[in-house]
Design a binder for these strands. Structure first.
Lengths: 180, 180
DNA sequence: CTTGACCTGTGTCTTGGACACAGGTGTAAG
DNA sequence: CTTACACCTGTGTCCAAGACACAGGTCAAG
């Protein structure tokens, strides 16, 4: 397959792209990379799990998780079985993290990626899903707000009340007398 | 068996007992309770799971759950193995539901009940735990608030943007261009 | 006798990873 | 060469608070 015959300068630019987007000073080292040696060490996309994780500021377990559920599809080194993450995997993971920041569930993201993988615009799906998730978030927000107020009020009220020993029909008067 | 011969007025007084103890005026009706009849209708506490659930407005599964983790300890009918919930179980479940409303975890509640069961005041534990849980709730609240704002802003921004088809390095421009 | 509603215990599912574990790999130092 | 150590693999389990499923037992009414 031609697929395995990746142009080394492509690979390098892919690498640089990834390194750059991570942070800063690897550029200095990027110059030292010998493309030939890079190709020797791995066929297509050189990045192992821990490196991938580091570049996007997540744990290796997170990368493994997204691999396990097939959102990432790294190649496999034939000789040692190690997974090799490509620039494409990097882009996907970056996308996943952005989407998670916007409240999409992992399942949502799989749906979105399915559309994109078929070259169809995922935007209508994205708009529909964010409406749903926003509703749920508003709901959760309201609940959390109420819970917080209840708790705050309890703390205030309880500060005026003594401790008591439980009786037959009262386990903790603080909690049971806190009517709401 | 005498067991199956449930006197309907007993059932009613059992009901009343539980209902009353919830509201606090059981002493008035307590006069009406005939202990002998109560013992005939069921040995100690007459209530089966679905009835218990209905009275506190939860599902039978919830009652079974708290039974499974031994917060409720119903008796067991020797002949059919059905669980029989007593007034004490009713009080405990009512307490549990109140505590859950105040953000205590089930594990918290077990700790609180352990104190109460040893006749020690659970109040210091309760005060300590609510401080922790309130902190966590404030945290969650802040996070939910931020997520909500992010999502709202995304919806607004996206309403001005067209759908697009994914490219090699862009899966969904809506999500990926939404910088924050 | 059958139907249907109820009961039992047990096991599995939910989210988004985190952690564990057994066993393989790669490399640098002694 | 061996050893140590850091890394890798797949798989399984765990979290919270129930919800749901399932196989099998019970019971009252028709």
């Amino acid at each position: 397959m031609t697929k395995s015959r990746i142009n080394s300068s492509d690979l390098l630019s892919g690498l640089e792209l990834m390194i750059d987007s991570y942070q800063g000073k690897e550029q200095i080292l990027g110059v030292n990379l010998n493309p030939v040696i890079v190709r020797l060490s791995c066929e297509e996309g050189c990045v192992k799990v821990i490196e991938m994780a580091r570049r996007l500021g997540v744990t290796a377990d997170t990368v493994r998780f997204y691999t396990r559920i097939k959102i990432l599809k790294p190649g496999k080194n034939k000789t040692n079985g190690y997974r090799e993450y490509s620039e494409n995997d990097y882009n996907r993971l970056r996308f996943v993290l952005s989407a998670r920041q916007l409240g999409f569930s992992v399942e949502d993201i799989q749906e979105i990626l399915n559309h994109a993988d078929k070259k169809k615009s995922p935007c209508p799906t994205v708009r529909r899903l964010i409406d749903q998730r926003l509703n749920e978030t508003e709901q959760r927000f309201a609940e959390t707000l109420q819970l917080r107020e209840r708790m705050q009020q309890a703390v205030v009220e309880w500060s005026q009340k003594p401790d008591k020993v439980p009786t037959g029909h009262m386990i903790c008067h603080l909690i049971e007398e806190f009517a709401q």
